[in-house]
Every structure is written in structure tokens, then in C-alpha cells.
């Protein structure tokens, strides 16, 4: 899903890093130090969940869940993603240090927007599954768009790759919307106070 080290041009990396610094700073400001452990633990659950692989034909896709993350964590998703992506480099060598800013920005920003829409839908009284589906779907659509933009911005060579990335996102969008819907349905059935609980941490 996210971009590997060594691909993007310097100015793309710099812009990504700048966006990430702003986003992370805003997210950190939103959480008091005594709430950080709790955000970390929920973020760990999202990290573990994203390790679930789903077999689609010959390949398998792993879940992104940035929209659900945005729904639960709001702006705090920025620092949460920075940490999660750093851990991915450390544990699995996915991504890399220089590209960390770009990846954090694309994944977190899209997740926050998707999650915000999801929250609005749920708080306007519509069923939770719809909020979850919109959050999951929009989160991944935007992540794909932002990732493709970052590639295309790095040089004409990558325009084809960028289109490929967008194309490859289509099945993921469907899967993420469905999973998002089921996750929110389950949460609202088993623990209706969940989303409110997360909001309290600001």
C-alpha cells in the first residue's frame, strides 16, 4: 500500500515530511500525556488488525483500516500512523525512513477525512455500518489517490506506476468498506460507548 524507500524525488519527500510534521504536531497537541498510553494501546490493536491478510485470487491483500482509525482517533491518527509505520520499517522493512513522512501523510490524512465523514454519518443517526463503510471506503480511496499523486509528482516515469496503484486499489476499496461496516456494526452492538470513549481522550 505505501511507497517503498528509494523511489520518490527529494522534493516529494520534503513536502511529505513537512505535512507529516504539521499533522503529527497537531495530533500530539490534541492528546494529553496521560491519555497517550490509551491511544497507544488502541493503535496497537489497529496495527495487529492490519496484519490480517485476505486472499483475493492468487494474491493476498492486507487490511489498511486507516478510515476506521480516523473514526476512532481523529487527529491523533497522525502520530499513531507515524509510530505504526516506523514499526513496520523496523519489523518488516516495509517503507523506509526517508519516505516515512510521505507515507504518514497519505495514510493518516486520508484516514482522518474518511473517519470524519464516518463520524458525521453515525452521529446524524444513520446506522453504524454505513459510517463504517464510508470511513473504510473513503479512507482507502483517498490513500490511493494521495499515493498516486506522490508518485506522479516524483517524475513522469512514475505516471504509469501511479495509474497502476490506483487501479490496484479498486478491490481494496471494496474489501475495506465491507470490513469497515462489519467492524462498526460489531462495536456498536458489543460496546456502544466505544466511539464516545475514544473522543474523551482529547
Amino acid at each position: 500500500m505505501h511507497i517503498s524507500e528509494g523511489v520518490l524525488s527529494v522534493h516529494t519527500l520534503a513536502i511529505g515530511a513537512a505535512c507529516a510534521v504539521i499533522g503529527v504536531a497537531a495530533g500530539l497537541k490534541k492528546m494529553e500525556i496521560d491519555k497517550v498510553p490509551r491511544v497507544g494501546i488502541v493503535s496497537a490493536a489497529l496495527f495487529v488488525s492490519s496484519l490480517v491478510h485476505i486472499n483475493v485470487g492468487p494474491t493476498s491483500v492486507h487490511l489498511v483500516l486507516n478510515g476506521i482509525g480516523g473514526l476512532l482517533l481523529g487527529l491523533k491518527l497522525f502520530p499513531a500512523y507515524l509510530v505504526a509505520l516506523f514499526l513496520q520499517v523496523l519489523l518488516f522493512q516495509f517503507g523506509g525512513l526517508a519516505v516515512l513522512g510521505v507515507n504518514t501523510s497519505t495514510m493518516a490524512l486520508s484516514g482522518i477525512i474518511g473517519g470524519y465523514l464516518g463520524r458525521c454519518i453515525i452521529s446524524s443517526g444513520k446506522p453504524p455500518w454505513l459510517g463504517g463503510a464510508i470511513a473504510g471506503g473513503v479512507g482507502v480511496v483517498l490513500a490511493g489517490v494521495f499515493t498516486a499523486l506522490a508518485l506522479a509528482f516524483s517524475g513522469d516515469v512514475f505516471v504509469v506506476t501511479a495509474k497502476l496503484v490506483l487501479f490496484a486499489h479498486i478491490p481494496v476499496v471494496i474489501i475495506e468498506s465491507i470490513i469497515g461496516a462489519f467492524v462498526m456494526t460489531f462495536i456498536f452492538k458489543a460496546m456502544p460507548s466505544f466511539v464516545g470513549e475514544c473522543k474523551k481522550w482529547e
Partner: peptide
């Protein structure tokens, strides 16, 4: 089932 797994994991985490 995966949705339930993830939902369960999130609730346990909180």
C-alpha cells in the same frame, strides 16, 4: 468474521 475479530480486538484494547 474478520469484522468481528477486529471489532473484538478493538474493544479488548479499550
Amino acid at each position: 468474521t474478520y469484522g468481528n475479530l477486529i471489532g473484538m480486538l478493538l474493544i479488548r484494547s479499550i
